[in-house]
Design a protein around this nucleic acid. Sequence first.
RNA 1: GGGCUUGUAGCUCAGGUGGUUAGAGCGCUACACUGAUAAUGUAGAGGUCCCUGGUUCGAGUCCAGGCAGGCCCA
Length: 1126
Amino acid sequence: MNYPEFKQPLNYAQVGTDILAWWKQNGIFEKSVSSREGQPTYVFYEGPPSANGAPGIHHVMARTVKDIFCRYHTMLGKQVPRKGGWDTHGLPIELQVEKELGITKEDIGKKISIEDYNQRCRETVMRFKAQWDDLTEKMGYWVDLNDPYITFEPEYIESCWALLKKLYDKGLLYKGYTIQPYSPAAGTGLSSHELNQPGTYRDVKDTTIVAEFEVKRDEQSEKLFALADNLPVFIMAWTTTPWTLPANTGLAVGKNIRYAVVRTFNPYTYEPQVVVLAKVLVNRYFTEKGAQASLEDYKAGDKVLPWRQVGEFSGAELVGIRYERLFGHEAGFPVFESEEKAFRVIPGDFVTTEDGTGIVHISPTFGADDFKVAQQNDVPALLVADDQGKLGPIVDRTGRYVQQMGEFGGRWVKNYDGHDESAADYRTLDVDISVRLKERGRAFKVEKYEHTYPHCWRTDKPVLYYPLDSWFIKTTAVKDRLIELNKTINWKPESTGTGRFGNWLENLVDWNLSRSRYWGTPLPIWRTQDGTEEICIGSIAQLSAEIDKAVAAEVMTHNPLQDAEKIDLHRPYVDDIFLVSPSGLPMYRETDLIDVWFDSGAMPYAQWHYPFENQEKFQKNFPADFIAEGVDQTRGWFFTLHALAVMLEDSVAYKNVMANGLVLDKNGNKMSKRLGNAVDPFATIGQFGPDATRWYMIVNAPPWDNLKFDPAGVTEVQRRFFGTLFNTYSFFSLYANLDQYTYSPEQAVPVAERTELDRWVLSKLQSLVREVGGHYDSYDPTKAARAVQDFVTDQLSNWYVRLSRRRFWKGELTADKRAAFDTLYECLYAVGQLMAPIAPFFAEWLYQNLTNSQVGEKPESVHLTLLQAAQTELIDTALEERMELAQRISSLTHSMRKKSVLKVRQPLQRILVPVLNETTREQVGKVEDLICAEVNVKHVEFLDDTSGVLVKSVKPNFKRLGQQYGPKLKVVGARIQQMTAEEISQLEKTGSLPVEIDGEAYTLTPEDVEIRTQDLPGWLVATDGPLTVALDVTLTDELRQEGVARELVNRLQNLRKDSGLEVQDKIRVTLGADQPELKAAVQSFGDYIRTEVQAVALDFAADVNGGSVLEFDDYSVPVRLELANG
RNA sequence: GGGCUUGUAGCUCAGGUGGUUAGAGCGCUACACUGAUAAUGUAGAGGUCCCUGGUUCGAGUCCAGGCAGGCCCA
């Protein structure tokens, strides 16, 4: 047996495990890399997963995408090294450990030492590694699991340090501050995780104020004053935190918001004034009565505040206007150095007209938005110098104003000192500030307002948004280059690159690197206490040398790096290292850890321990040709890779990137363990096998769309695609083995000598090879999979094999039969190759079955084969077109048979095909035999104009008419639909037809219409677009007899099958013969029947006891069937 | 709240640069077929192409504004 035969149904999961074992045994993955030694490299980066949780079905999706392109490029002959990796640092691991130990961050260093804590993290982070490795293998993701990079290893950290040092030396690493939630009562910053604890957001009643900022009169603001009749102009801004007003340095407006200029009076001082606020909010502050009230008659203390809108501007027109500092010397406040850049109107895209005035007060030290928008617009923060001359915010770390704040110096900004709020003398700072502003005519409205505000989960006190020290990478310095190089990256989908990622780059702020945690890569910067001297360490060797200096200076007693068996660069060990500054002062490490995204973004370098080792390897593997991760990584891994590559190498980090979507449950809901709708990847692969799972995920929707994972869809893929392909292979193997056929490229029948149908399917196949290659090349695996699937089910199985069946089972192994085997073999082989990247196990199974009997040299695995470029010389477009005609004509004929209840087994005399041109006639003529065989008719006849029976109709060609006639299209179209047969004929003959519509003359051309035959009077017809087919349903005696003969054959075949006979068994048939029509049919078509059912004898007998009875049409025939072998 | 993205048949999805009658598969109904048979063929039912405006002779397609889901960021 040359080609293994299998029982149905095939166990696809078993195929997966068998092939996996075979791959392992024979080191196929390793060979897929080593066999490409010396070939061009296709560089792939593995985005490291974290192994602290079990893998989910979405990981199968993400990794399938990665695997597809690595396998594809291997099959193009390139070498594709695939180093695995593990992401091991970060908050999720810390939280998990804390949960398991029942502790909080507070307890670290108290209940548990940092050392033990970190040890625990290290153990936890790889806990699920075995499961991950298992899934990786079972799903067929080829990646090197034996030599992965691991981000907590000292070599990896050392590489990170080297990169940080490079950035430091370029001046791209600096210490600044960022606005973070901060609890003055606890004296600590809060993570967003802590802020999301239940109960932290509470309703509180605060004093709020609409403050008035006085506009400076200058060229820029003259347009306001021109409307103001020499009155002072104020911009109104609302805040729920009046204590931040002394730190105001900017006012933000929405560029597209309309602002009204309103003439009115200050409600507290009664002075006339002009104010600016969002137009849609005017009626929130001014009454209808006020609009009627007279401005002139207004007296101080009047209840109704008169007002008039005197002008209107867009936010964009207000940008740049300057205003007076709200609190200055008059309140005894300190001098502000950077005054000339501050106190401006700036645009802010977060500004809305939902509440307030549509103008937002900006205090860069006390709001994250404020900080960001100020930075983008070069508005400085208001900082004051302390006694040492060090600049800081106006609020100290305990939550009170610094002493320099004039009359308010030392006041608590919130009630952090436990003051009894019900006491008669209790007044908040907010109230006092509001009172002062009222007195000075800088308040428009002061009121209590209830809103939700975050509180510290430990102290229950309100949180402040407060500037905290942080280390930054100055990504803004290379912003333009980041944008420029991003444009050279091929994003899939494109919109993620231009939209989500592109916008992110456009609005870039510096990368905040600092994390106040324990388990992560430590920041390698040591500083003197006063911060005037510092050093950035770039290697273990450098650190060791610096320690030696420190030992010499007696800052340290010994060098711990020298006697350590294994160096650990984590906390707390690095914290216990002290260095000495050039001036002889001790230096302490900045206690921050760095953002884990730096770890992963550093993988192109750190995975090779570059620059300490593997210089060449790094060069050869940078940048990546391809990476893929979830779209949620856009601002994570995709960004950090890009940022580091641009800053360090002035290069992209990857040339092609796919951002795949989420995997949801079948109802479109997010999968979660809690809801119990999570799909277990092991169970899925166990049930359906890895190939159907992968194929379903890819074929169903493009990877960048979200996938609604429905197991029913996997079943369908399995049945429809894999089932059909398996059946096709089974069909091939069954008959190939019967004929002892073996494929051999050298002995294959030349394509030119094969049948029309063979050449057609090969043409289709080569078109497919070309198409699929194109889809893989442009990173569109879904289109590739769909093309392969359509070819297998529609063309190969349902047309080629169906129409060729007889050739495979009839007679001896002739050249024609050989051609059929060759053709089918070549199709299966190529399909196996094309599907291999997506369904690697099944493709391997198919390849092994097809090639195991092959003599001579051949690649051991389908994944080691080379994907040949399409043999375009075999592509015959005309052939493909006429076969499509044959398919459509057949379909129409089937449809007519159905309507007239004429089963296919009943032969009919002819079909008629009206043809309007010679090309169609030729085309159909060449496939006449196929059509006849498929629909069981004797002839295809053509009808042309000369027959005189064709009825033609026309359809307007709207596309062309629209271009030509525009608005007149409707009347012209209507006119065309009324064309008479004579007019159609004239248009065809002369090439033009003059018509008159509404008194205007037009000349129609053949291109303006589509001519088709419509009807054939007296015939049974069916049409499909321009194609029309008529069926001759006349039955002659001979046709009837043949029909009976074919029925008989069919029943005998069934009987053979039911009797358990093998395909090659010969039989003797005895029929009971009391029906003359039947006897006549058997006599006329005896040879035919004997050949079909492989009968050595076909006889009539009066008595056929012991047999069965065949029933068909009106007949009931006793029959006896005997084996006649030997 | 912002950015991006999706919305077409019961379900999953196609529908270059606008062209009048919007398709496929699955599912459903009916019939047929039965040496690929957990397959196949033919027919049928099933659509306010998310909504509202606009541009146009003509919009599923282009523009604007909404609505709903998703992701990321606040």
